[in-house]
Design a protein around this nucleic acid. Structure first.
Lengths: 121, 121
DNA sequence: TGGTAATATATAGGTATCCTATATATAGGG
DNA sequence: CCCTATATATAGGATACCTATATATTACCA
């Protein structure tokens, strides 16, 4: 049985193409509501039908960096007994940066599609 | 006056998002017709309205790797006198790999858009 | 004639992101 | 009791892209 993290060897190409989308999508998910790391990975996995399977070794360092940069705020939460979860909230600055990054993504992805759709021969 | 290469400091975010798209677009451009490096950069720059400004330090190593991997064939061409140009041709294998990479790109970019478009609040 | 810019290719070195591997800990099922 | 799932964390490695630098030709212009 496949564990949730470590789920699979992604193709070389995919690994490169998804670069930069991790922080973008994390911020986008947190705009909906505060979530904890594992929940973020599970949500994106489900919504992309497995196209994105964020690894723990990518996701948590990314979250720490977003926190360092002041784009998200972390808060331990639980259930006094039992497993603690670290909930991340989008900050005001995080919202602004997200808006910029969405623009950048749209600009780049549309540019790629424009080139790809240019007829050959 | 801006030199064609070295044209500008790209934002951090853009730099990450465009990763993986370089080889994809090079192969896509070569599907139209054989081109040389400088021509590839000029073409993509024009067609994307400056969204992509490939640097020499990125483009030429990328072309060398595509050649090593057998996806393109290089051929010096000129004008016996004067500046030589290295024309790159897409190989049979290169066509097949390009088709796969276009599928991967569509899958990933659509997955990103699906997440981004999910309403918040 | 001399300087600058554009054309054209190349490589070395640095940075950042993502991956694998590993570690820790709780909870539930067989 | 072990295995899986849940949940977070970090160290080490691979790799793509960037900056900086190097070389050479051609064209323009003062």
């Amino acid at each position: 049985m496949r564990r949730f993290f470590r789920a699979g060897v992604r193709h070389f190409m995919d690994a490169e193409l998804i670069k930069g989308t991790l922080a973008l999508l994390v911020l986008s998910l947190l705009r909906r509501r505060p979530m904890y790391g594992y929940e973020l990975a599970a949500t994106v996995r489900q919504e992309t039908d497995g196209a994105f399977e964020w690894k723990a070794g990518s996701l948590y360092p990314c979250l720490h960096k977003l926190e360092q940069d002041g784009l998200v705020l972390a808060e331990w939460q639980g259930k006094p007994e039992g497993r603690q979860r670290k909930y991340y909230h989008l900050t005001r600055n995080g919202e602004a940066v997200l808006a910029e990054r969405i623009k950048a993504w749209l600009s780049i992805s549309q540019a790629v599609n424009r080139v790809l759709e240019n007829p050959h021969e």
